[in-house]
Nucleic acid binder design. Structure first.
Lengths: 114, 114
DNA sequence: CCAGACTGTAACGGACCCGAAACAACCATA
DNA sequence: TATGGTTGTTTCGGGTCCGTTACAGTCTGG
């Protein structure tokens, strides 16, 4: 399945969704944060700090801090890996799933009305 | 023209584009900044600080500061309105147009390969 | 058992951003 | 030409994020 978008359509879609994100009451997540969040929810577990850092091409502290703030917002949770206690496993939460469901709705609705 | 996206498709698209933005060398713009940038390039001029603030539902200093940083990056430029010197007109630049062209390409390419 | 490699995290200094409020420049109208 | 309302900007205190570096906990192979 393939979706063809003109330049103007692509930018309009991005603009409309960004505008919706800015205008709603939720605290704005940075691009890095939503990228981490989406990786966790779209790709198969387990997710470790190291893996996420490598996938995004950033340093580990960036991931740690993003998990701190998204953890406060209850969008993700952390747990020690009991098999190898050096690892931290990043896990999904109900709030995180709802947040992304709403995001998908926003994207879908604006794509529909392009 | 209407584009139908499933939940997974919408999130995958967003993830892939966000990942591309994080991984490239350009400094990451915040969601607010790209929203301002897109408004300037997609909607008809003139664009004033006041109008942009109202459109985004944020305060004027937010716009001023975003224009400061994007001005440093040469993505936008400012000029006094000679007709009413209280106004500042926000204008497009070559670099800004190229930036958005690249963004549109990124979005389009990932949409095509959904 | 222990030295080294590997995890994730904390500390640091600097940069940026926020909202609220104060501010300076400018216009309009009486 | 004053005065009130408009514009965009600056300032203030507080917060977040960055990359680098240093650190503490954990595993593993000799």
């Amino acid at each position: 399945m393939s979706v063809a978008l003109s330049t103007a359509q692509a930018l309009t879609l991005w603009h409309d969704v960004a505008l919706a994100l800015v205008r709603d009451d939720e605290p704005d997540l940075s691009v890095r944060q939503v990228c981490i969040l989406l990786t966790i929810y779209l790709e198969a577990p387990p997710h470790t700090v190291r893996d996420l850092a490598k996938k995004l091409g950033v340093t580990k502290p960036v991931i740690t801090r993003a998990l701190d703030t998204m953890g406060k917002l209850e969008l993700v949770s952390r747990r020690r890996d009991e098999k190898d206690r050096r690892n931290v496993l990043v896990q999904r939460t109900v709030k995180g799933a709802l947040y992304l469901e709403r995001l998908a709705d926003t994207i879908g609705n604006h794509a529909k009305s392009l």
